[in-house]
C-alpha cells in the first residue's frame, strides 16, 4: 500500500468521491439507454411508429 503520509485521508477521499460520482454518472447513462431501448422495443412490437416512419403494415 502506497504511503500517502499524514494527509492520506484527504487524498483517498478525493479519489473516492471522483470514483463514486463518475460510476453513478456512467451507470445512469447506461441504465437510461437500456430503459429507453426496451420501451422503444415494446412500442415497436405493438406496431407503433413515429409519424416520419412508414408503418410496417
Amino acid at each position: 500500500m502506497i504511503d500517502l503520509g499524514k494527509h492520506a485521508v484527504f487524498i483517498w477521499a478525493s479519489y473516492g468521491i471522483v470514483a463514486v460520482v463518475l460510476t453513478i454518472l456512467i451507470g445512469w447513462l447506461i441504465g437510461d439507454g437500456l430503459r429507453l431501448k426496451r420501451r422503444l422495443g415494446e412500442l415497436e412490437a405493438q406496431g407503433v411508429t413515429r409519424r416520419s416512419q412508414t408503418p410496417d403494415t
Partner: peptide, 10 residues
C-alpha cells in the same frame, strides 16, 4: 425524443 414521438402516436 423518438420514444416521446411514438407515445404521442400511440
Amino acid at each position: 425524443r423518438r420514444l416521446n414521438a411514438m407515445m404521442q402516436v400511440q
